[in-house]
């Protein structure tokens, strides 16, 4: 077994999924109406990656979890009020845009720099985790671009499980088409894993974990490097929310027989 893993989780904030989003044009490219006011959450798939990282770190002595987050500093600070109570980690903050319209190539470059600059980083113990796609850009490319920039050869997409073996090799389950899993065995760290949902429920808030984390969070936010992540090489022509309201027909006070018959007829059409 290794001396433990250094698990670096990349994850940032996205608007709370229950918010209605309205695009608008800004001098920096497309944005969202009231973007800075929208309540945000930790990007769901990277949140799963963080919970899985903490779980793995708990099992393998000597492991440590880092959370590398690129987002507007003030919003990151707000986010940490909840996220820091979930699992133990050390925050590496980068002050920049978390917009879904920024270019993944630029985001990956900034993340790679931040990961490589973590003091005492040992590539032979390094596992980089992240979400398989963000709920903002939803491109699913950032983690591979990061993997290449860190010169790591092994990457896994849509991961739901990692099982580390006594010789430090590990088995990974990746989601593929049709509800199936591709099963792979990797010789060991370093590797990059982009997570899907994993298997763990969201941990309950733990104020003690929160207190310990917050000691590192505030200094990390203070020294967050500003970065100019933008739309890069993308020239946006238009961003819109296409009208999708349907004229819903509500069928009520009708017997189950009649409803069933109508449904079956519709299915068979």
């Amino acid at each position: 077994m290794t001396d433990g893993f250094q698990i670096v989780v990349c994850g940032s904030l996205v608007p709370d999924p229950l918010q209605t989003l309205e695009p608008l044009t800004t001098p920096q490219g497309p944005g969202l109406k009231n973007e800075l006011m929208l309540p945000s959450v930790l990007d769901p798939w990277s949140a799963h990656a963080l919970f899985e990282a903490a779980n793995l770190a708990k099992q393998i002595a000597g492991s440590k979890v880092y959370l590398v987050s690129l987002g507007p500093k003030a919003k990151l600070q707000q986010l940490m009020m909840t996220v820091a109570q979930k699992v133990p980690f050390e925050l590496v903050a980068i002050d920049g845009s978390a917009s879904g319209f920024t270019d993944a190539h630029e985001a990956a470059a900034v993340l790679a720099e931040a990961v490589a600059a973590i003091p005492g980083l040992d590539k032979n113990r390094l596992l980089v985790f992240g979400g398989c796609a963000s709920a903002s850009r939803d491109a699913g490319v950032t983690m591979q671009l990061l993997c290449e920039r860190l010169a790591i050869r092994d990457f896994f997409a849509g991961v739901d499980e990692i099982k580390v073996k006594p010789d430090s090799s590990f088995e990974v389950l990746e989601r593929i088409e049709g509800g199936q899993y591709q099963v792979s065995v990797c010789k060991g760290a370093p590797a990059v894993l982009a997570w899907a949902t994993g298997n763990l429920p969201e941990p309950p808030n733990n104020p003690q974990v929160g207190m310990v984390n917050m000691r590192g969070v505030m200094p990390a936010l203070m020294k967050a490097k500003p970065s100019k992540v933008g739309t890069g090489g993308i020239a946006y022509e238009k961003t819109e929310v296409p009208a999708q309201k349907r004229a819903t027909r509500i069928v009520k006070d009708v017997g189950a027989d009649q409803i069933a018959a109508e449904i079956v007829e519709w299915i068979k059409q």
Binding site: P30, A235, Y236, T239, V241
Partner: peptide, 14 residues
């Protein structure tokens, strides 16, 4: 689509 199928974007790259 951006923001998980909520905003449709039209764009190009040079």
């Amino acid at each position: 689509w951006f923001y998980r199928q909520r905003i449709l974007g039209t764009f190009s790259r040079a």
